[in-house]
């Protein structure tokens, strides 16, 4: 149940992000859309690791080891994914700054070099 709610949120975030990437004309808005898409994927990945009625994988003392914990591996993976997503966002923002300095505009309709 809990993971269904989280997964629905994740899917909605993915769809919102993709909608922004596909329809927006401003480079900064496309990058924000990409970030939302990224967060949606992270939420889906975290919710896949959820085990029914389990707690966070932080062990308070050794006698509690029998308790059920959620899967730590997707959480570790998402930690990696967040950092890489951040690197990509920084890279895209740099390109946006670059394009603005070259063309004086962030509207993708004014970049027509690859169109004919």
């Amino acid at each position: 149940m809990t993971s269904t709610i989280a997964m629905t949120t994740g899917i909605l975030l993915v769809l919102i992000g993709l909608f922004a990437i596909l329809t927006q004309k401003d480079l900064i808005r496309i990058i924000v859309g990409f970030s939302i898409f990224d967060i949606g994927v992270h939420v889906i990945m975290i919710s896949i690791g959820y085990i029914s009625d389990a707690t966070a994988p932080i062990i308070e003392n050794l006698s509690q080891l029998g308790q059920s914990y959620v899967d730590p591996v997707p959480q570790a993976l998402v930690l990696t994914a967040i950092v890489i997503g951040l690197g990509i966002s920084a890279f895209m923002l740099t390109f946006a700054v670059f394009m603005f300095k070259k063309r004086g505009s962030l509207d993708i309709n004014s970049f027509r070099d690859l169109k004919w």
């Binding site: 149940m1 993971s3 994988p57 062990i59 730590p72 591996v73 930690l79």
Partner: peptide, 30 residues
């Protein structure tokens, strides 16, 4: 929704406190 951990995660959770001694299992994995 799964009700128990898979083999790898279960190994990490149950052997990590004795092997490495980190309270946060995610940190031990990372």
């Amino acid at each position: 929704e799964p009700t128990s951990l898979n083999a790898v995660s279960s190994h990490y959770i149950h052997n990590e406190p004795k092997e490495l001694g980190a309270a946060n299992a995610v940190t031990a994995v990372v």
